[in-house]
Amino acid sequence: MSVEPEVPIVQVEEVRENPVLYKIISSDNHVFTISEHAVKLSKTLWDLITNLGLTAENALDNPIPVENVNGKNMETIVQFCERHKYDEEEPEYTNYIREFVLPEWDRQLLSIDNEELFQLILATNYLDIQKLMDYCCRVIGDMAKDKTPEELRIIYGIPTDAEDDALERSASDSPGPSG
């Protein structure tokens, strides 16, 4: 006959259903609510929360303004962070080419046009969300698959060496602030 332990067992799901929530305001004044586990994926936001001394009690009364990220990008970022908040930490990558498969849910989330993706990456870079950065970079890297150098030049908007040289010359020829 086994003796049941008297220690109360807390279900992980119960804990997950009562998270500490934070409010974020985007550059265009959209307000987003994000859980503590999710916001921790952003080093910038978590540092801000720590430095502001926000706690479970006062978090919702003190929205965090993020002036470099608009509402559209913030929405994608919050969705991503909520989706991945319980993911296990990934090992450090080596210096070599990265081998990982982009999950289908994330591929769908990042199926946006190139300009939006560019802006999302800048926002992700500012908020320092490594996993989202890796996934965005994978999407951009995958655009190169099976393309010729000329096609790559078009997809990525890469100038020719001659165009680069011309730009450099015109920049050096233009008068400086005092001229």
Partner: peptide, 26 residues
Amino acid sequence: MKLLKFPWLVLINILKCMDTVDLIKL
């Protein structure tokens, strides 16, 4: 999209996600 407009570290991250053959072509 202008690849060369990305911040240095971001662009390095993108290149690290590419297959070697694509990197050589690029």
